Amino acid sequence: MGLLLASLFAPLPHDPVRPDALSVLRPPSWDHIFGTDRDGLDVFSRTIASASRDVPLALGGALVSLLIGAPIGLLVSFPTRLADWVMRALDLFQAFPLVILAVALVTLTGNDLQNVVIAIIIINAPRMIRLVRTEALVLRSRRFVEAAHAIGASRSRVLFRHILPNVTEIMIAQTALAAAQAIVVVAALSFLGVGVSPPDPTWGLMIQSGSQQISTGQWWVVLFPGLAVVVAVSAFNAIGRGLQEAQR
């Protein structure tokens, strides 16, 4: 979150998209604390600026996955023919490598931010559906749910009045974990050349570009955006794990 706040409010020492031909592949110094890349772009400014794109994309995709997956997970927790069809379709869908499917989707539909969010939803929504369904199945055997059925409460009332409030905490924890994975997905898409197009800075694109300079000793070009990905993923994982521990 600190990276995101810095990218939104902190003044950057250099323009993240304006190259400087006189400062190509400079090592870290007082003027360029993270060094510069092969185009003379300041690595520090681009690393911070990337947070304003990568983190909202990941968090937005995770939140939409929650909004889609939670209601479906609740609805298929009751044994109906439709629920059986949904779960069978989900099993078939998850049989495919979802990351490869996401890359193929963005490649075919174009390097649009909206398509990157859809790719994140494709990966995270099925897991959210299964999680909410599993928790709802456990809650259905609790006495307060049986009492609600006994007094004539409708199925929708039981789901959204009695079961949903009791799965909210685990849904929020899973959303934080999904955001951590989404950071990796966004970086992977950018690394493979799909998703956000240059010259807009993204961590994955910076890592891809910097990997070509490792063999010649310019380690700083790939190190700092890579560390930014690690920090962002670790932060979301820590939030998710903390919320899970708080529920126990």
Rank of each mutant, 00 (worst) to 15 (best):
A49W: 01
V229E: 05
W203M: 04
R133S: 10
L139Y: 10
G69A: 11
D42I: 06
I163H: 02
V222G: 05
T80M: 10
L205N: 13
R46G: 03
N237L: 15
L82H: 05
I151F: 12
D42R: 06
D42P: 08
I214W: 12
D84E: 15
P225L: 11
D112F: 14
M1W: 01
V132A: 01
G110E: 03
I207R: 00
V132Q: 02
N115H: 15
G242M: 03
W30A: 13
Q244L: 15
L223I: 15
T168W: 14
I72T: 05
R53C: 06
P198N: 08
G69N: 03
A179G: 11
F34C: 05
P225T: 07
T134A: 15
N124Q: 13
G73C: 05
V76G: 00
P13F: 12
A188T: 15
L108P: 01
G2N: 12
P165R: 07
T36I: 09
V55I: 15
P79F: 08
H162V: 05
L67K: 11
T175D: 04
P165N: 04
T134F: 06
A21L: 14
I207H: 03
D31S: 14
I123Y: 01
L137H: 05
A10R: 08
A95F: 12
R130Q: 14
V24Y: 07
S23I: 05
I72S: 07
S52H: 11
A58E: 02
I33K: 00
L59T: 02
D31M: 13
A147P: 00
A228E: 04
L139Q: 01
S197T: 14
Q244I: 13
A70G: 07
A153P: 04
S65D: 05
D20L: 10
D39E: 14
S77G: 15
A173Q: 06
S65C: 09
I120P: 00
L41S: 08
A104P: 02
P71S: 06
G60P: 06
N166Y: 11
I183E: 00
L192E: 10
A235S: 15
I207W: 03
L82K: 09
E146M: 06
S45A: 10
I129W: 04
Q244N: 14
L92A: 15
L227Y: 09
A178I: 07
I151C: 06
I170D: 03
L159N: 01
L74D: 04
P165M: 05
P165I: 07
S77Y: 00
P165S: 09
A62Y: 03
E146S: 03
P13Q: 07
V138L: 13
Q247L: 14
L92Y: 12
A180L: 09
H149M: 13
Q247N: 12
P13S: 03
D20Q: 08
M206G: 06
H14Q: 11
